[in-house]
């Protein structure tokens, strides 16, 4: 079996079989990360370009390492050092990168739908590394992978996603991926930060964390996107933290031993307390490692490397 499309743009468009294929492949590739010589020849001769219009530490590095561990050639473009600052359009940039023989473009962009647009412009594979408020499918997959490693499967689990769901591309990918895998997903956050009509996606929303967390197997804390808070959707970070910060007291409302996750970067003391972020239930650091494995799997499956 292979992936259906040339691109990975969203989990909304991906079936559970494809997701499982990616996660199974990640399982077999993960050990490469722990080898003394982290290099397999799988993607030798393939050219992968990461193209980030927004700042990123973990996603961009994770993709780059995933590509390098499999011997692909990588080039990184960031907005500030590219012709974007001269006003070059995404369309022209896409044509330019295509003309240089890129096999895969990994893009992060501030505008929802940009990766779909890019995928129509180029023959190369496009991987969405986060588009506006839309999706972040590789984050969704690494989150699922992390849960699967600890729980065996997502089937029947209750996952509580807490925080700024409205602006979160991570939340959207998690909702699609986890519900398609049989998990129950509930959302918690202030009403001004919850999207309208998401009950149609099969998720329930709560405004009180205390109502959402009981029975949860996984507590997934979203980053408060302070750069998007200028519109005054919550009165203050202080008030937000008082009502929504996941600390030891609140985490205790979930099932004993519930998994605690966060996509990073964290605002400690705002959406998550250091007591739990660095605590025994936290998988936040492991998520990062798993991100490399999942991205190796995606690159491998998309670029059709020679025998692994």
């Amino acid at each position: 079996m292979a992936l259906q499309a040339k691109d990975v743009l969203s989990l909304q468009e991906m079936g559970p079989e494809e997701m499982n294929l990616i996660l199974d492949t990640a399982d077999s590739l993960r050990e490469v990360i722990y080898r003394p010589i982290k290099k397999v020849p799988t993607l030798r001769g393939k050219t992968i370009i990461t193209f980030f219009h927004e700042p990123s530490t973990r996603t961009r590095t994770s993709f780059e390492l995933a590509a390098k561990f499999m011997s692909a050639d990588t080039v990184n473009i960031s907005t500030t050092t590219s012709a974007i600052v001269k006003g070059e359009s995404l369309k022209d940039t896409a044509y330019t990168l295509q003309a240089m023989g890129a096999d895969c473009l990994i893009m992060r962009h501030g505008i929802s739908g940009s990766c779909h647009y890019l995928s129509r412009l180029v023959d190369a594979s496009v991987i969405n590394a986060g588009d506006g408020m839309h999706e972040h499918p590789t984050q969704g997959l690494l989150d699922m992978y992390t849960i699967r490693r600890h729980k065996g499967s997502l089937e029947g689990l209750k996952v509580a996603i807490v925080g700024d769901v409205l602006h979160s591309r991570v939340a959207r990918s998690d909702i699609w991926g986890m519900t398609k895998s049989g998990a129950e997903v509930v959302l918690a956050g202030p009403r001004t930060l919850l999207p309208d009509g998401f009950e149609q996606l099969g998720v329930r929303s709560y405004t009180a964390v205390e109502e959402a967390l009981p029975g949860a197997d996984v507590v997934y804390v979203l980053r408060v996107q302070r750069e998007r808070q200028g519109k005054g959707l919550v009165p203050s970070m202080r008030e937000y933290a008082r009502q929504y910060c996941i600390n030891g007291r609140r985490l205790a409302l979930a099932k004993p031993g519930a998994l605690l996750m966060h996509p990073g970067p964290m605002n400690r003391g705002i959406e998550i307390g250091s007591d739990v972020a660095d605590g025994a239930q936290s998988l936040i650091v492991e998520q990062v490692t798993n991100g490399v494995a999942v991205r190796m799997a995606i690159l491998y499956l998309l670029l059709g490397g020679a025998a692994a």
Binding site: M133, E135, P195, D196, G197
Partner: peptide, 16 residues
């Protein structure tokens, strides 16, 4: 605003 405010705007991550 990019599209109608509603479920689809939420799903697509566009301001409604």
């Amino acid at each position: 605003g990019q599209m109608h405010f509603g479920t689809w705007a939420g799903v697509l991550g566009l301001r409604g």
